[in-house]
Simulated scan of single mutants.
Amino acid sequence: MLRRTFVRTGCLTAGAVLAGSLWQGVAGAVAPSFEGPYGPLGEPDANGVALPEGFTSRIVARTGRRIGGLLWHPAPDGGACFPDGDGWIYVSNSEIPLLGGASAIRFGPDGAVVGAYRILSGTNLNCAGGRTPWNSWLSCEEVFRGRVFECDPYGSRAAMPRLAMGRFKHEAAACDPERRVVYLTEDEPDGCFYRFRPVYWGDLTSGTLEVLCASDSGTVTWRRVPDPGALLKATRDQVAGATRFSGGEGCHYADGVCFFTTKGDNRVWAYDTENEHLGVVYDADAPLNGVDNITGTPSGDLYVAEDGGDMEINLITPERVVTPVLRIAGHARSEITGPAFSPDGDRLYFSSQRGARGDAAGTDGVTYEVTGPFRR
């Protein structure tokens, strides 16, 4: 049974803590620390990536260049890894208009690239998304009346829109197998936080879309969105009392807690699903600035990518240490996207969406792999 403690943070009660050796509490403004579990960052390596001692990087793919027989897409964004026999697959979205979609890279057991292919085409500004427990990829359109597409990372089945999950400016998704719901963020200055309850777990074609409503004390209730596909009234405006968030970004579920980020106020939030409380894990300007995509490990560590900032991925530990684990040099006009660990936890994948040139079209995107002794 998970144990929860509650710490006052601003006007919210922070109920998002994990048990025992994991999260012991949360706080509004976490003090920065450079005494993290991996030590300080060294000088940038040959790939321009600054890493702690014992970690190495390689460039896996570049926009406009061939990898595994595929021309790698522009503006690589949200991503996830999937098991594939004795190897694995990394899926990446493309955040460009009209031709966005998503691609997949297949790796062998030694990490060598053995193939690449498209799993979604002809969609619009595919930003983040999320992996499902049944090993499909939810690719989210970050546009007005955007859709969620369920994709097959193995390339065998056609991608399908899941319209019951709502038509809004989708950002990320995270599955909660215990409550059998999918949490969804909305990238609007006054966006909401949603959950989708499918009629049958594992089938996202039909279900109920609900919006989070939180009291000043952080107590959460969920209310049904009357018309998830409405043309005239946005989903975020259909329920009185829906809680507003300043630009929803990444979303990650682990052990009864759903973490999500909001770029407008540079916060990492935590929704305690068991006690139905909303709290804040991180609320500061440094060392983490420009919160965006988020992932985690079984050890309870969170990895938060920066949109701009210092072009870092920062670690937030259960002990509330916040420290950079990598930095990309010379990409000041880009953002870090798509952090995801290989199934064995030894490799971290991510992209610099616009690369060193920083052009808006993302024609200089770079996808990386970092290998090292990550805590599991």
Rank of each mutant, 00 (worst) to 15 (best):
T13E: 11
A14I: 08
A16F: 11
V17G: 13
L18E: 14
A19D: 13
G25K: 10
G25Q: 12
P32H: 10
Y38E: 08
G39C: 09
P52I: 00
D77M: 03
C81V: 11
F82C: 06
G85D: 06
G87E: 02
E95P: 05
I96Q: 06
L99A: 14
A102E: 08
I105C: 10
D110I: 00
A116M: 09
G122V: 04
G122P: 05
T123C: 05
N124F: 00
S139L: 01
F144N: 01
F149T: 02
E150R: 14
D152T: 07
R157W: 00
M165S: 08
F168C: 02
K169A: 00
A173N: 06
A174W: 01
D190G: 07
Y194Q: 02
G202L: 12
G207E: 13
C213H: 07
S215N: 10
D216E: 14
T219C: 06
K233F: 07
A242S: 15
A242P: 12
T243I: 13
G248A: 05
C251W: 02
V257K: 00
Y282N: 07
L288I: 13
G290E: 03
V291C: 06
V291M: 05
T297S: 15
S299K: 11
L315H: 04
L326V: 00
G330V: 00
G330L: 04
Y349C: 02
Y349G: 01
S351P: 02
Y368I: 07
